[in-house]
Amino acid sequence: MTVTDIPAVLARARRGDDEAFRALVEQHSRSAFRLAYRMAGNEPDAEDIVQESLLRAYRHLGQFEARANFGTWLYRIVVNCAVEHVRTRESRKKRARMEPIDEFTMPVSESPGPHRLAESRDIGRRVAAALDSLSPLERAAFTLRHYEGRTTDEIARTLRLGTSAAKHAVFRAVKKLRAELKGLEAGD
C-alpha cells in the first residue's frame, strides 16, 4: 500500500483500519528515527522512542484533527516521547551512579592528550558526551533549534512551554555545551 491519498489514508486509519496505519508507519518511521536519535543519542533508545511514539499516535488517532498535518503531529509526539524517555534514563543513571561508566557516558572532564583530541573520533565522543550532559528538556530544545531549525515559537509549541522558557532552555544548552567543549571550538 502506498500513501498516495493522505486524507483518505488518514480517514481510514482513524476509523481503525490497520493497513492504513501501516502505510503511515512506513512513510514516517525513518524521519521519526532521525529525530529520535538526535534527541536520545543512541540507537536502542531511538528505536524505543519510535515504537512508543507510533503506538501513542495510534492510540490517539481519534483526537487527531483531519485538517492537520500527520507528520507535524507525529513529530510532536516523538519529541515529547523522547523527552520522557531521556528523563527516565537520566533518573535511572542517577540511581545507579556506582555502576561502571559506559563509553557513551564517559565524563567530559577527563583530559585527553593533544593527539587524541586531534582525532575527530574523540572530538565526536566529547561532543556526544557534552550533549548527554544536557537535561532532557535542554537537549530537546537544542535539538529542535540547532538540528531541526525550529524557531523559538515552534519549540515552545512542540514542548508545550512558554516562549521564554523555550528560549532559556536553548540558552542554557548552548552555555553548557560551551563549558563542556571549551578549547575545542572549531578553528582552534
Binding site: 560551551r178 575545542l184 571550538e185
Partner: peptide, 28 residues
Amino acid sequence: IAGTLALVADVDVPERDDRYGLEVWQRI
C-alpha cells in the same frame, strides 16, 4: 559561540533503509 556550535554541527545519524518502516510495523 559560533565555533562551539559548528563543532556540534550535526549528529551522525545511522542510516535506515527503505524497509525500515516495514520493520517497525512488524514490531508494533
